[in-house]
Structure formats: structure tokens, C-alpha cells
């Protein structure tokens, strides 16, 4: 069995990814007087336009990178709340800078995500709780967290949290427990996990998931 502290080791990848390719960095930094974040995060938006045959990639737009708590609030206070994005098929993604919110990304390809389905009306509040926990490093799983997504759909809204290593059960169960705590989920909440490999196979993000009840 893996030493559970392995995941806490500094994986000081610096400015290079595993292939040694320099990542595109915004060089965004916390300004004097601001509170720096552990990681820079990029905020993305995607919307599927009805009727048009466009790829996920084409619909995905990076809006801005934030490096401090204050820069995050500047952004957050000047974008629509998820619930006000209108009906339809929209997503906000907040990912560590350098990780694209795509299954195929180097940081995601061995990973997966926890999924929480929300009834309509509570998405904005849950999303805020999730991203504050992520930005504040509340998950305590080393470098494992990749990013968070809120997906606005017709019948329900879906919150997900992506991590690097789907096979690492110590990490995924710690993430699940923290997720339940920061979202204040009732004990019988159904949690679903899906590996990105499975998503690539069935080309779907939220179908055929593994269901966990506790």
C-alpha cells in the first residue's frame, strides 16, 4: 500500500509539465496588500449553443486568472451567479492555472471527479462554498485537486470536483469527506465518482457514474 503521505509530497513541477513543456503562465501575482493563494486559478466559462454542432473545446473560454483572494473577489463579484446564467447548458470552471478543464489534459488524464447533483435553486450557494474551500486549501490532499465545475442544466445543477489520481482511494475518500463537510451535505447524500477515462469512453460527463452512499 502507498504511504499516505506520498500524496503530500511537494511535487514541485515548477513551470514545466511532465513532458518538460513550459506551461503557458499568466505571470499573474498577488499585488502588495493582497492575500496570495497557494495556487493561481483560471476561471473558465462554457456554454453549449442549442442546435449548433460545436465541440466542447470550441465552447470553452478562459476568462481570467487570479493569484490572490482579492483578485478572486474582483472576479466573483463581476460575473453572474451560476443560477442567473439562464436556462440551458452552461458551466463555470475554476481550475489551477496550467490545467485545462478537459479530461485529456496531462493533469487530468489519470484522474476523475466527485459529482453532487443539486436540486434547482441552490447552485450558487453550493458553488461558492466549494470554491472557497478549494481556494483556501481546505482539502489537505497535497497537489491532488485540479479544479471545480458547476454545470447548469435544465432539470438539475451539478457540482463536481476534479482530482489527479482516480486510483488513489485515500485521497478520493478524503476529498469526499471534506466535500460533504464544506457543502454541509446531509449524511444520506448520494455521491458519485467518475474517472475521466470512463468519461472519454462513453463521451459523457455525468452518466454511468459509480454511486456511493454512506
Amino acid at each position: 500500500m502507498n504511504n499516505k503521505f506520498d500524496m503530500l509530497k511537494v511535487e514541485d513541477s515548477g513551470d514545466e509539465d511532465v513532458n518538460g513543456q513550459p506551461k503557458e503562465k499568466s505571470k499573474k501575482v498577488a499585488l502588495p496588500g493582497e492575500h496570495p493563494l497557494q495556487f493561481n486559478y483560471a476561471f473558465w466559462f462554457s456554454r453549449r449553443s442549442p442546435g449548433k454542432q460545436t465541440s466542447y473545446d470550441q465552447n470553452l473560454k478562459q476568462i481570467i486568472v487570479v493569484a490572490s483572494v482579492e483578485q478572486f473577489w474582483q472576479l466573483y463579484s463581476h460575473v453572474m451567479r451560476p443560477s442567473d446564467l439562464g436556462t440551458g447548458h452552461s458551466d463555470y470552471h475554476l481550475f489551477k492555472e496550467g490545467i485545462r478543464p478537459m479530461w485529456e489534459d496531462e493533469a487530468n488524464k489519470a484522474g476523475g471527479k466527485w459529482i453532487v447533483r443539486l436540486r434547482k435553486g441552490i447552485a450558487s450557494r453550493c458553488w461558492e462554498n466549494l470554491i472557497l474551500a478549494m481556494l483556501g486549501e481546505q482539502f489537505m490532499v497535497g497537489e491532488e485537486i485540479c479544479g471545480s465545475v458547476i454545470s447548469i442544466r435544465y432539470q438539475e445543477d451539478i457540482l463536481s470536483l476534479w482530482n489527479r489520481t482516480a486510483s488513489d482511494q485515500v485521497t478520493t475518500s478524503r476529498i469526499r469527506d471534506t466535500l460533504k463537510r464544506v457543502l454541509n451535505l446531509p449524511p444520506n447524500t448520494i455521491m458519485e465518482y467518475k474517472t475521466h477515462t470512463d468519461s472519454l469512453k462513453d463521451n459523457s460527463s455525468y452518466r454511468n457514474t459509480d454511486v456511493f452512499m454512506r
Binding site: 493582497e34 466559462f45 481570467i64 483578485q71 474582483q74 472576479l75 463579484s77 463581476h78 453572474m80 439562464g86
Partner: peptide
Amino acid sequence: LTRSPPPNMPKIPGV
């Protein structure tokens, strides 16, 4: 420090 929108924020209607 959080009052103004981020500099260079792209304009996406409805977002």
C-alpha cells in the same frame, strides 16, 4: 481592493 472588476476582463454578454 475588491470593488473594481479585474482589469482586462473579457465581455461575455450574460456572464
